[in-house]
Amino acid sequence: MLIDALQCGEFSRDVFERLLKGRYTCVTPTLGFWEGTLESMDSLGRWRDMERDNADLIRIVRRAEDIRRCERDGKLGILLGYQNSNLFEGRIRFPELFADMGVRVVQLTYNNQNDVCGSCYEDEDSGLTRFGRELLGEMARVGIMVDCSHVGDRSTLEAIEHSPKPIAVTHANAASIFPHKRNRSDDVLKALRQSGGVIGAAAYRNITPERACADLVAFCEMIARMVEIAGIDHVGLGTDYSYKNDDRFREWMRKGRWTRSVQYGAGSAAVPGAVAKPDWLKGPESLIDIEGGLRQIGFQPAEIAKIMGGNWLRLYETVFG
């Protein structure tokens, strides 16, 4: 089983075919970054159209058993997720409505502080707001997994503490391995271990060591170090792999509607635009090669199965059944 807990960009039939060729069982696409309720519903509608148009290839999954069914019948499971909680627009009743429409993953905030918590890019992480604590309880109740990949460390630790169910960091690496605001501290990784959460190792060049981008075995060694910190049951894959990511798409990701100024996201003035995929991950079909890399550095088959997808499946089952 191969599960990638976060990808983004423009999905289409040719992307689904590539993912199936790469033996993916399930992937979480990004349905939105800054969109409000109505725009987020538009995105859901488009994905339902895509499911109908590509019913021979994909299935929108709502429960862990749906993912197992995809594995059995050779379809690609689509776990619907958003990288911001803007879709709720501050309304405590909306998580239940979006859960009923099939949403299963929502990141608390993207690159800015919002009405829920602080982001990793703010000078000061405010922690969870009162609404944020209410939202965590409601998301747990209706079966939406909390994601804290772009959330500040203080807010992430408070989310782990206050959430009735384990949470995720779907696409980040350990800051102790590669210091970056987008990566998570050892305290967060250890808290995930204690609470039953999972972190997805990212393959996005701006937040990944250059050596781990140049060589598959070095990437697997990075995963091994994350396992040392978080534990074998709490590390998976969340590549942040993107499709058809052009300048317009990047501008929306980085700026939304909130600014006219230059924003680099995880990049910098030195690396302002698109970055190359890791040398060993030129296409999504290559992700399955991690199995061999993990085996080469000493992981056992049962451990490899957990990293490749088993840990995500367990967390999904815990959060939404």
Rank of each mutant, 00 (worst) to 15 (best):
R141W: 03
G132N: 02
H180R: 03
R205Y: 12
V105P: 04
M222D: 13
V262F: 01
G310A: 11
R184E: 13
N54G: 01
C26E: 02
Y243G: 03
A201Q: 08
G293I: 00
G137V: 01
V61D: 06
Y110I: 09
D233S: 10
D279R: 09
S185C: 11
M1I: 11
Q113S: 15
F16M: 00
Y264I: 01
L57V: 04
S268A: 07
T109V: 14
R184V: 15
H171A: 13
K255R: 15
P179F: 13
D215E: 12
I144V: 05
W34H: 14
R154M: 14
L87N: 00
T25C: 09
G231P: 02
P95I: 02
I160A: 11
D186Q: 09
Y24M: 13
R295Y: 10
G143L: 02
T28Y: 02
V15A: 00
Y24D: 10
V116W: 07
V271W: 07
G267W: 05
Y243A: 01
A305M: 09
V61G: 01
E251V: 00
G267D: 09
N54D: 08
L20M: 11
V146Y: 01
A159Q: 04
D279V: 09
A212R: 02
A191Y: 10
I307M: 01
E138C: 07
M222H: 11
L237V: 15
A212T: 04
M41D: 08
I304P: 06
I307L: 03
A202G: 06
R72G: 11
G298M: 08
G74D: 09
E124I: 14
W34V: 00
M1R: 05
C220A: 14
P179W: 12
S261P: 00
V262M: 14
I290L: 14
R257C: 12
P29H: 08
L38W: 09
R225S: 15
E285M: 09
E122V: 14
V227P: 00
V275P: 05
L20W: 03
L192R: 01
L237G: 00
R91M: 11
H180M: 05
L19R: 05
R130W: 12
K181N: 14
Q194G: 09
L57K: 07
G137F: 04
P95L: 01
E134R: 04
L31S: 05
G265F: 04
G152Y: 08
E10R: 08
A203P: 02
L135N: 05
A172Q: 04
Y316D: 12
I232S: 10
R184F: 03
R93S: 13
N111C: 12
R205G: 03
V319Q: 03
A270R: 08
Y243W: 13
D53T: 03
R46Q: 10
G196C: 00
G152L: 10
P278S: 06
A191E: 10
R257E: 15
S195R: 08
V217M: 03
A266R: 06
